[in-house]
Design a protein around this nucleic acid. Structure first.
Lengths: 227, 227
DNA sequence: GTTGAAATTAGTACGAA
DNA sequence: TTCGTACTAATTTCAAC
């Protein structure tokens, strides 16, 4: 995989605007912490739980929303009860120069809940939720296989979802740690963030160098525009 | 992998109570649809958008919540802005009979956002969010490798998150489709839901037979109790 | 960044269709 | 069941400090 998503696919969006839009302090993180566990809490109650005034809470709440630190509020639904009892992961190898088409096709598949571009053996991983096993088969052999951008797939079933946290926050690692300042990690010496000591663990491959990580916001915006 | 999560690990929870707790009709699904996109909408506004009375909306809203069809409300946070710019997937091979320990250890790792038990080459997939690449390395070699239950790992970086839908619903596939009644899938003939025609697609392995799919609710409850 | 008071809105209870 | 209305409690907004 050589061509990732950046630059080639994302023609929209200001290229310069990547970094800082709002300095998140400890109070902001505390707000996010509460909101992540109870997205329907009133701002008044939020203020009380965080320990700030109502007006302050409103200001910060709006700032976080406007800045994009809070993307949206959503309800977590029990897919089994909603009728989608089967979950599967499909690892896709994408033909070069066809990422745009691949993304466009993805947008037309409502059973896809999540899609990420990855390093490693495959190029992308998609997670689907469907009603029965036959639907997985149909998805892979009929819908995905018919996309020219898809070179190969590998499917795996999810037997159980052990854990899903509503979006991890840096404050989870311990109190008094501001965002944007990673602070010394619990390891020993390798604190030279970025492309520091890697490879050699338990068989992971970490091709450092041209890796431009994540940047989920842009990718998501792009796709949602197509959808 | 022989021992999945069911029966061995989940000692809590009523075994008989798996299925129906509430018949979801079209109105219920419509409510979920709205709530999934705007978890903070007022019940009054929800009623208007769904086309029912406020009183009815309150009743159904509470029913969905009590039944568990709505698990919780949460805020989607931009992890990059929150200071967690690196996302990685770690595929783990777990030593037999040690699932319980593996789960317990997972609960102590705040950087883990998601964990699912899978079929295929590996036994579990976990998704982590951290501040830098070094933290991934530390996670894999120090924390995971030191768990006896972990036999091997394989790490992959997420370069871009193309799509994340706030929980897929069956109604996404088309209007007028009730839950719990899959209806004929858009494929041709293989409508014999359950263990029907599989294998032979593009290289996926589907070991049917003893597969007991998903059941996410129980697993999650179990882990959250430990955390 | 905080407090307090007014206006609006949300949540509840009840009777009728 | 679902709807409509009236009542009560809470939240949001806006003001001055």
């Amino acid at each position: 995989m050589t061509e990732t998503s950046r630059g080639t696919v994302h023609e929209g969006g200001q290229p310069g605007r990547i970094g800082i839009g709002l300095e998140l302090d400890a109070t902001h993180l505390k707000i996010l912490e509460v909101l992540r566990e109870n997205g329907r809490i009133s701002v008044a109650a939020l203020a009380e739980r965080v320990g700030i005034s109502r007006a302050n809470a409103y200001t910060r709440f709006e700032a976080l929303r406007a800045d994009g630190a809070i993307k949206r509020f959503t309800a977590e639904i029990d897919h089994v009860r909603a009728g989608l009892g089967i979950t599967a992961l499909i690892f896709v190898t994408v033909r070069q120069q066809m990422w745009r088409q691949f993304r466009a096709q993805l947008a037309t598949m409502p059973e896809v809940e999540y899609c990420a571009i990855t390093t490693g053996q495959h190029d992308a991983m998609i997670q689907i939720r469907v009603t029965d096993v036959a639907a997985v088969h149909a998805m892979v052999t009929d819908r995905l296989a018919n996309i020219p951008a898809v070179k190969a797939t590998e499917t795996v079933f999810i037997l159980d979802e052990v854990l899903r946290r509503p979006y991890v926050l840096p404050s989870d690692r311990g109190p008094g740690r501001s965002a944007r300042r990673p602070a010394a990690d619990p390891v020993g010496g390798s604190g030279t963030s970025g492309a520091s000591g890697n490879s050699g663990g338990s068989g992971e491959e970490v091709p450092l160098g041209m890796m431009r990580f994540v940047g989920a916001a842009e990718g998501r915006a792009q796709l949602q525009r197509d959808a």
